[in-house]
Nucleic acid binder design. Structure first.
Lengths: 216, 216
DNA sequence: CGCTTGAGTTAGAAGCTATAACTAAAATGA
DNA sequence: TCATTTTAGTTATAGCTTCTAACTCAAGCG
């Protein structure tokens, strides 16, 4: 059976689901995930509150799905940037563009965790896709000639997160550095911690990328 | 009038306020800021919901005060670490200890921002204290001999965030790098993004610190 | 054409924040 | 010492939320 050709009921259903998620994204963008209201979405769609429970198990289920979509979108962005061959600077640019496009979407992935909340299992698979794309880019860069330090020797035995990627410890280390540093500058910018400080966040970001690619 | 010697009523009042905040911290630690419930706090203290409005303007006011306290605590930690003379590694260790002590407290400062929310003005003053301590530590390190790059020349004219600190652009640049990189590794660790990846987060953290102090 | 499936409804329970009106006790001043 | 004022805490209530239950009605399908 082809998943694309669906019955009219299924077509309608998936269309309403998409509409609900679209409104949810709007709300999240303007009020954050904590401000997402099922009632408000239902009212916007011209139907009454409980109707949404035909489409989603509840508020948490909806948010979980949005988190999944955000992960998916980020993984696709990473994959595309890695395949574009524009190297680490290209990947970094793509990441920042993706983040600035919808900061709250970024925070849905990398923001404050809710203590009780457990992400669905498939998000860890997508997270591995993201790391795989990152490793591809890092593996294509100039190899570092420095002798391995404590972290690299540790990573030689603890690289399960890299799956079966054939990257040497130096590349693993580099990928982690890229990830954490880009997240560092970017998340602070997105959270508004640079506003009022006077400098241009983009310059700081590109400087961090240059520091990663070998400059300075 | 001494602020310490207060009337019995004021003593009682401030004690109840402290009790409320203590319960609020417990709730935040176990359920996150979004899970904080005034009703639950009141019930724990053996009084009924609306009684808390004698002590705080409302839920938002209480959270704002907790944010302020978190900022204050972090600034004190930074000041103490800077004055201890243990350099950048000491500062980094203090930061990580402080963060692991109560991850949600860290996220109250550096976590996902709520789009509408505006932090009270005095937090920006405390944020400047934090940067001042960081600048003190960075200024005491070995000066870099590299010629200034684009970011440093930019910072030479855009350093209002440094107040009247007499740090040269190279130190300003360094302070920003320290801040963003430590936040990068630390926030990902606290959010649980390293769990299941296999490596030891502490090694990654210390490696990042070593990369900052000149090793690597 | 009749039956089944399912989308959407209203009603209502349980929770939340927050306000209003009231009670009772403690501090204050003549 | 007694009357007045201040204030901590109460209950009642409005208005919001998520979510469940029971019901209606129309569309799809054999």
């Amino acid at each position: 059976m082809a998943a694309g050709a669906a019955s009219p009921r299924e077509r309608y259903r998936s269309q309403v689901r998409a509409e609900i998620k679209a409104r949810a994204w709007e709300q999240i963008a303007t009020a954050g995930a904590s401000g997402l209201s099922l009632n408000a979405i239902a009212k916007e769609l011209g139907m009454s509150g409980p109707a949404l429970y035909r489409y989603f198990g509840g508020r948490d289920d909806l948010i979980t799905e949005l988190v999944r979509d955000a992960y998916r979108s980020l993984a696709d962005t990473f994959r595309a940037a890695a395949d574009a061959g524009s190297g680490l600077p290209g990947l970094a640019r793509a990441l920042r563009r993706w983040a600035l496009e919808d900061p709250q979407r970024y925070f849905l992935v990398y923001g404050t965790p809710v203590p009780g909340y457990r992400a669905p299992d498939d998000t860890t698979a997508i997270a591995r896709e993201i790391m795989a794309a990152l490793l591809d880019v890092c593996a294509a860069e100039e190899p570092g000639t420095a002798s391995p330090d404590a972290l690299e020797t540790h990573l030689a035995d603890h690289h399960q997160w890299a799956g079966d990627h054939p990257a040497p410890p130096s590349v693993l280390r580099r990928a982690l550095a890229v990830w954490t540093r880009l997240h560092g500058v970017l998340s602070l910018e997105l959270a508004g911690h640079f506003t009022g400080m006077g400098f241009d966040p983009e310059l700081l970001f590109t400087a961090e990328v240059e520091g990663l690619t070998g400059g300075r």
